[in-house]
Amino acid sequence: MGCFHSTAKRQHPGYEDPVDLASQTSFSVSEVEALFELFKSISGSVIDDGLINKEEFQLALFKNQRKENLFANRIFDLFDVKKRGAIDFGDFVRALNVFHPNIPMDEKIDFSFKLYDMDSTGFIERKEVKQMLIALLGESEMRLSDDIIETILDKTFSDADANQDGKIDRTEWENFVTRNPSLMKIMTLPYLKDITTTFPSFVFNSEVDDLVT
C-alpha cells in the first residue's frame, strides 16, 4: 500500500505519522488512519486547508446546521491546544483519545473539569455553571425561572462544593463525579472502538504496509 503515498502530508500542515500517533494514544495505526478519513471530511467542509476551524467543527457536530453553541465552542477550545483557532490532525487524534473507552477515568475527569472551568481559573465557579445552564435553556425548549435556576445551583453546590466556598476545585469535582458517575458518560465515545469499520476507506489511503489492528 506504500504506492499510494498520498499528498496528505503536503495538504495537511499538522499531519503526523500515524505510527507516532498510535504510539502516543490508545488507537492502533489503522484506527489513526481511519480517523484521518474523518478529519479530512471535516477539515475540507468549508476551507480545504487541512485544518478544522470552528465553523467546520460546529457544522460536523450539528450536521450542517450553522449554530453558535457555547458548549461546542468550549470543546473546540480544548481541542485547539496550540490556541491558533484551528485543530490540526495531531490535536484531533490526541483530544479524541481522551474519549476512548480504554483511557483511565482520571484523564477523563481532568478533561471534564477543564470543560466546565470555562475561564481556566482552576475552579468551576457558580457564575460559570449559571452561564452554562442559561445557554442550555437557550438551545432547548426548557423554560426555567431565575428562582428555579438558583435553586438548582444551590442544590448542586451543596452536593459538590464540599468546603462551601462557592467554587468547585479539582478534588471536589473528582469526589462529586465519583458519586455521580453518569456525569462522565459524555467523556466516553463507544464509536472510537469501531472507527475502522465506520471509515473503511482508510485502507485505500494507507501509507503503512502492514496494518496493525
Partner: peptide
C-alpha cells in the same frame, strides 16, 4: 427526578457536548 436538580446532569445534555455526532454520517 433527582438529576433535574443537578446542574451538571442538565448541562451535559447539550448537543454541543455530543461528540458522537462527529461519527454519524
Amino acid at each position: 427526578k433527582p438529576e433535574s436538580m443537578n446542574a451538571f446532569a442538565l448541562i451535559s445534555r447539550s448537543q454541543g457536548f455530543n461528540l458522537g455526532n462527529l461519527f454519524e454520517k
